[in-house]
């Protein structure tokens, strides 16, 4: 009894060691956003990258703010997010080597089929937000410092409103990811700003529909940054850079372009290389 107990214990400790060793293989940690992860993009492109290079990419999906913070602490090798101003500050502060455009998609304003603010079908998102505020229709905000959240706040500013500060009843900050925000909006019959990729792959659309799309102010640019090894010496700069190079290359850009759900393309690659190629 006693002996077998010790044996079990010894066996139990093996996976702990094994797991730590496993983490040391050629793998990198990419801090990215819930919208990219939830859309299924990584499941589509990462196997292609791994087949080519043998590098295992581990994606930690967080809000953009949290992802940048994770990278700032040195817990990721690469950041892949969508809040350009924050990303540029990250590089300027010395945490990132350089920022590159990767791709874009767009935000859309989602609303309940009942459309209490009468905004569905409009082309001007700022007008729509003003109408929502004027009719006090419920609006769900991510409230999690994500890229989508900061895009939403910017649009309110353009609309000359500040519900985050005024905290009216109809404005609900939930502090969660995109999917959770869509679930909540569906349950409450509320409007919500979403990235198109998450919306297309979202399975519980139910009573929700697209209210406003196509406004140029809804443009959503993704960028990629290598965490600076000068700040965090353990950063796996070589495989990290290899991933960035691949994502920006024609091959990576094609992989992004080819990802579709129900025949709809979710992300539109626009790296400098891709642009140059198109031009040339």
């Amino acid at each position: 009894m006693r002996l077998s107990f010790l044996a079990t214990l010894a066996l139990a400790l093996v996976p702990i060691g094994a797991a730590s060793v496993g983490a040391q293989e050629t793998s990198i940690v990419v801090a990215s956003t819930t919208s990219t992860e939830d859309s299924g993009l990584f499941k589509h492109i990462l196997p292609l990258f791994q087949a080519k290079t043998g590098i295992d990419v581990k994606v930690v999906a967080q809000g953009t703010g949290q992802a940048l913070d994770t990278a700032r602490r040195g817990d990721a090798d690469v950041v892949f997010v969508h809040a350009k101003a924050l990303e540029e500050k990250f590089v300027a502060d010395g945490y990132g080597v350089a920022r590159f455009d990767v791709m874009y998609n767009d935000f859309i304003l989602i609303g309940p089929k009942g459309d209490p603010a009468k905004v569905t079908g409009g082309k001007d998102v700022v007008v729509a937000l003003k109408a929502i505020a004027a009719t006090k229709s419920p609006f769900v905000s991510r409230g999690d410092k994500s890229g989508t959240h900061s895009a939403e706040l910017k649009l309110w500013t353009v609309a000359a409103l500040d519900p985050q500060k005024d905290k009216p009843d109809w404005y609900r900050e939930i502090g969660q990811g995109m999917g959770a925000a869509l679930n909540t909006a569906g349950a409450m019959g509320a409007y919500v700003l979403s990235d198109r990729a998450t919306w297309i792959s979202f399975k519980n659309k139910d009573s929700l529909e697209i209210a406003v799309e196509g406004d140029t102010r809804l443009f959503n640019q993704y960028g990629i940054i290598l965490v600076d090894p000068k700040k965090h010496p353990h950063v796996k700069a070589k495989p990290g850079q290899a991933f960035i190079d691949w994502v920006l290359s024609a091959e990576g850009q094609n992989a992004i372009r080819s990802y579709r759900i129900d025949g709809q393309q979710l992300f539109f690659p626009n790296s400098e290389q891709a642009q140059r190629k198109k031009a040339g």
């Binding site: 581990k58 959770a180 679930n183």
Partner: peptide
Amino acid sequence: GGNIDGFTRVMTTTIALETSKGNL
């Protein structure tokens, strides 16, 4: 754990994730 696909994704974190994706 970071809920990394294929590495640190366990049942409870998957349930949380799939719920957030509306994949009930």
